[in-house]
């Protein structure tokens, strides 16, 4: 072990400890810097992960940033994040407005993943959860103005399941109807076709990461099916 570095032979314990402490301090400084850089780069609210991606924290443990999913994507939807992209350096993501996910039946990106960062147990692409579409600007949406745009509804790969059209009275004229696109967050895969197709300059419907788009009932809320419970309450009075 010591044959290769003669100067070390004369090293005494004090020198050894001092040198080790110095290196360890340097390594510690470098380490804090690295963690700071890594922590500063987080997934942006408009950056979507490929189908079947693990939750973000686990995804960052697992992903080796090899780009096999990107190369497997037949539509060039996926890309590896550059610096200053809204995703941590080198990880796969896509922007729905630019190129949405085409939801391939054979899910080649998930099959290509060697690390399990994309969960291989996903076999039905309609069960993917890349994000949730949210009609975020009702004021700008043409359907809310009483027009029959419906483009987001028509391009949805899960037509009438993930986005449906619900009719209501148009109080503006009081004798026309509004046809409102409504997203079912249970069904929406977050493929981004709606955001991509929205005819506005800036889309009124946007796909957001599930963690940002979805609420969660409080732990003490014991109602399993709040919809039917509230209906009973309305019809039969409150029975706690």
């Amino acid at each position: 072990m010591t044959t290769q570095s003669p100067p070390l032979k004369g090293l005494n314990r004090r020198q050894f400890l001092a040198t080790s402490a110095r290196y360890a301090c340097a390594a510690g400084l470098v380490g804090s810097g690295l963690v700071a850089i890594a922590r500063a780069q987080q997934l942006g609210p408009q950056a979507l992960r490929p189908p079947a991606a693990l939750a973000e924290a686990e995804f960052l443990s697992a992903c080796v940033r090899c780009g096999l999913c990107v190369e497997a994507c037949p539509y060039d939807t996926l890309q590896l994040a550059r610096w200053f992209a809204p995703a941590p350096m080198g990880t796969p993501w896509f922007s729905a407005r630019d190129i949405p996910c085409e939801m391939c039946d054979d899910i080649p990106c998930v099959k290509a993943c060697p690390s399990g960062a994309l969960d291989p147990s996903l076999h039905d692409i309609s069960e993917a959860k890349m994000g949730v579409a949210v009609l975020i600007d009702e004021k700008a949406c043409l359907n809310f103005k009483g027009l029959r745009c419906d483009v987001c509804y028509r391009v949805c790969p899960l037509l009438d399941q993930a986005i449906s059209i619900e009719m209501s009275r148009n109080h503006h004229s009081d004798h026309h109807a509004l046809f409102i696109p409504v997203v079912n967050s249970d069904k929406c895969t977050g493929c981004g076709k709606c955001e991509h197709a929205c005819v506005l300059d800036v889309p009124a419907i946007k796909v957001l990461p599930p963690a940002l788009a979805q609420g969660k009932a409080a732990a003490h809320d014991t109602y399993q099916d709040t919809g039917s419970v509230t209906l009973e309450m309305l019809n039969g009075g409150f029975k706690p």
Partner: peptide, 23 residues
């Protein structure tokens, strides 16, 4: 930390990603 911190700066794959993926 629970994540692969070094992969943010590891220059070996960074150079490959620059050439192969345009990063």
């Amino acid at each position: 930390t629970g994540f692969t911190v070094w992969e943010w700066l590891n220059p070996v794959p960074i150079l490959y990603r620059a050439l192969l993926f345009g990063n």
